[in-house]
């Protein structure tokens, strides 16, 4: 449906905005490497099924694109010259292990099929995605204010989440037996994390 497509497009746009920012400004200052690495982990654990689930060309292609773009961002942040010298690890100080560990436990404990390692990995990726933005939000708070493109990037990520939430309501109403408790709860948690950011984003845009 169109709402979900809008969600996917704003998600993809967020990658391009971030790549554009770090290529143009030659700087990754204010960008959380931890969040970006968590996203690589999210996509690699969620899209293992790319090898056996061929739902549509769209789905398979988007999976490859999401993995490739997230790996590319981490690559530029770690290896890019001069980008790698502009990274501030002292500001990127969120204790990310405390995000990954509970998500692993939750993924093993609560999933759609306790006998399937793929379902565990998939559930893990859903839980981790919900909280993966936290190191980035923490960094924005420590910095005081985010650069324009960085805030557009975070805004697009939050927008993607909002589109998906609306898409779930729409699917629940139009598709018989459509039920996705894990995804809905995690998605709602993820959206809540953006509320404070959204508030400040809109406020600063009004000021401009």
């Amino acid at each position: 449906n169109a709402i979900r497509l809008a969600g996917d497009m704003s998600h993809m746009a967020s990658f391009f905005v971030l790549l554009f920012k770090i290529n143009k400004s030659k700087s990754v200052a204010g960008i959380s490497l931890k969040t970006q690495e968590l996203y690589v982990l999210v996509f690699c654990t969620r899209y293992v099924d790319i090898f056996w689930n061929h739902l549509s060309l769209y789905n398979s292609l988007m999976k490859v694109i999401f993995i490739a773009l997230s790996v590319m961002i981490v690559y530029v942040m770690r290896r890019g010259v001069p980008q790698r010298s502009t990274y501030n690890p002292e500001l990127d100080s969120f204790p990310h292990h405390w995000l990954v560990l509970p998500c692993v436990l939750l993924g093993v404990a609560i999933n759609q099929d306790p006998t399937s390692p793929f379902e565990m990995a998939w559930a893990f990726s859903i839980y981790l995605e919900a909280v993966a933005i936290m190191p980035q939000l923490h960094m924005v708070q420590k910095h005081g204010e985010a650069e324009n493109l960085t805030s557009h990037y975070i805004f697009l990520l939050g927008l993607y989440r909002v589109f998906y939430l609306v898409n779930w309501v729409y699917r629940y109403m139009t598709e018989d037996g459509y039920w996705q408790a894990i995804v809905w709860v995690s998605g709602a948690v993820q959206a809540v994390l953006y509320l404070d950011f959204f508030y400040n984003y809109v406020k600063s845009k009004q000021k401009d």
Partner: peptide, 10 residues
Amino acid sequence: ATPNEPKDEL
């Protein structure tokens, strides 16, 4: 989705 149903969202 029922268990093991292909995941159709990203």
